Amino acid sequence: MKQNFTVRQGALDGVEAFLSVAQHRSFRRAAAELGVTPSAISQAVRVLEARVGAALFMRTTRSVGLTEAGERFLSRAKPAFEELVAAGEVARGLGQRPAGLLRLSVPRAVVPILLEPLIASFCQAYPEVEVEIAASEELIDLAAEGFDAGIRMGQFVAADMVAVPLTPPFRFIIVGSPVYLARRGRPECLDDLRQHACLRWRRSNGALALWSFDDNGRAIEIAVSGPFIANDFPTMLGAAVEGMGLAQVPEPIAREWVSAGKLVRVLEPFEPVTPGVFLYYPDRRQIMPKLRAFIDHVKSRSEARRKIRVQADDERTRSRKKD
């Protein structure tokens, strides 16, 4: 049989009516202030007195005064109620405009190449928002850990999350330093990796990540071996620059090193494409203005970058036609 449940009366029921009567020393003026009838105020105070177990007011036909119990109740209830009202105003403010602390969980690799310029422009646009970046490779529960959103590569974002792309898809590339390749030779096929020192990445769950490849449209994974293990891509990239071995890393974080000649791409025909990097959060209905502002900022920056890429591609196309 289905039971009926009601919310238990709380300790704050009738307190606002009590404080208004205590301030005005009048049930009628308190009722006018709160926009209710004098009888409603009287009933609320009676219920409060019954719950407290003591009379709070002395009533006569000409005046209303506080009892000793009422005086003591007033001295404690008034500042507490004012704090509650102030708390409500603070919460209401955060719910109406971009303000407060925005906490983001991100992998260390994306901070310098993606977040630093994005965060700088966002903080200039929204000075009332404080941004906290927790750089970690660990995949965490955003709600349980108190984060507003996270940033991860698309393949690591749970299906029940709302995801906003921060980058276009990119390749996972194999790189090695010129010194290492001169010493060990350049791999030409995947089987050659057996003779190479491969730098490995340990996932947040403790497992060593396999290296992923695209073999003519067929996705394959290979367990590699080598002298060094890291739990983030920047550390592994640094080891590759120092000539410790080959590393498989996201192309955007290695681009600068490859352009400078400090690293060389190998096995390019086998590079897999990943979905890219995404901002993700639990539920559209729970978005605070600070997060909505950040999402809109991300989208506007992404659109601006897309237009720049399109213009650059058009210019290259026109240049080739002229040649």
Results as ranks from 00 to 15, higher is better:
Ile229Val: 15
Ile41Phe: 07
Ala143Glu: 15
Val179Lys: 15
Phe170Ser: 06
Glu128Thr: 10
Gly243Phe: 12
Arg306Gly: 06
Gly53Gln: 03
Lys307Phe: 04
Ser121Tyr: 01
Gly150Asp: 02
Phe27Pro: 01
Met288Ile: 05
Val15Ser: 02
Thr167Glu: 10
Phe233Ser: 08
Arg203Glu: 13
Val277Phe: 06
Gly185Glu: 11
Met244Phe: 12
Ala11Asp: 12
Arg186Asn: 02
Ala22Cys: 03
Gly261Asp: 04
Gly217His: 03
Ser259Asp: 13
Ala223Gly: 12
Met236Asp: 08
Arg309Pro: 01
Pro282Met: 07
Val266Glu: 07
Val164Ser: 04
Asp323His: 10
Ala254Ile: 08
Arg186Ala: 10
Lys290Leu: 07
Glu33Pro: 00
Ala223Ile: 07
Ser42Met: 05
Ile133Phe: 07
Ala109Thr: 00
Asp192Glu: 10
Tyr126Ala: 09
Phe294Ile: 06
Gly100Tyr: 06
Arg194Glu: 15
Ala293Leu: 05
Glu68Lys: 01
Leu12Cys: 03
Ser63Met: 04
Phe147Val: 06
Ala77Pro: 04
Gly185Asp: 13
Arg309Gln: 14
Ile229Cys: 04
Asp215Met: 09
Val310Ser: 12
Pro112His: 09
Lys2Asp: 12
Glu303Val: 01
Ala312Arg: 14
Ile174Lys: 03
Val224Asn: 09
Glu128Leu: 14
Arg316Val: 06
Phe5Glu: 14
Arg194Lys: 14
Gly65Ile: 04
Gln23Gly: 08
Gly245His: 04
His196Asp: 13
Glu33Gly: 01
Phe233Leu: 12
Ile173Leu: 07
Leu19Lys: 01
Arg28Pro: 02
Lys290Gly: 03
Arg76Met: 11
Ala163Phe: 03
Pro187Arg: 11
Leu114Ile: 10
Arg194Gly: 00
Arg171Lys: 12
Gly245Lys: 01
Pro282Tyr: 03
His196Gly: 00
Leu166Glu: 07
Ala219Glu: 12
Arg28Ile: 13
Met288Lys: 11
Arg108His: 08
Val157Ala: 09
Val36Asn: 01
Glu71Ile: 06
Leu237Asp: 05
Trp211His: 13
Phe57Ser: 03
Ser63Phe: 05
Ala135Thr: 08
Tyr180Phe: 13
Pro168Ser: 13
Pro252Glu: 02
Phe156Val: 00
Ser302Asp: 08
Arg203Thr: 07
Val52Cys: 12
Ala80His: 11
Asp323Trp: 07
Glu268Cys: 01
Asn205Val: 05
Arg202Ser: 08
Ile220Ala: 09
Ala99Gln: 13
Val45Asn: 13
Gln9Tyr: 00
Lys2Tyr: 05
Gln286Cys: 02
Leu267Cys: 01
Ala239Ser: 11
Val21Ser: 03
Arg255Cys: 02
Ala149Glu: 01
Arg305Thr: 02
Glu315Pro: 01
Ser105Ala: 15
Ser302Pro: 00
Glu188Pro: 00
Thr61Lys: 14
Thr274Arg: 05
Pro169Val: 02
Pro165Asp: 02
Ala99Thr: 06
Phe270Met: 08
Ala293Tyr: 10
Ala54Glu: 12
Trp257Lys: 15
Gly261His: 07
Arg292Trp: 09
Gly93Thr: 12
Pro252His: 05
Met1Val: 12
Val258Cys: 11
Ser121Ala: 14
Ala11Phe: 07
Leu142Val: 10
Val45Leu: 14
Ala209Gly: 11
Ile41Asp: 00
Phe81Tyr: 14
Ile295Glu: 06
Asp192Gln: 07
Phe81Glu: 11
Phe172Lys: 10
Glu145Asp: 03
Phe147Met: 09
Leu74Trp: 11
Leu210Tyr: 08
Ser121Phe: 04
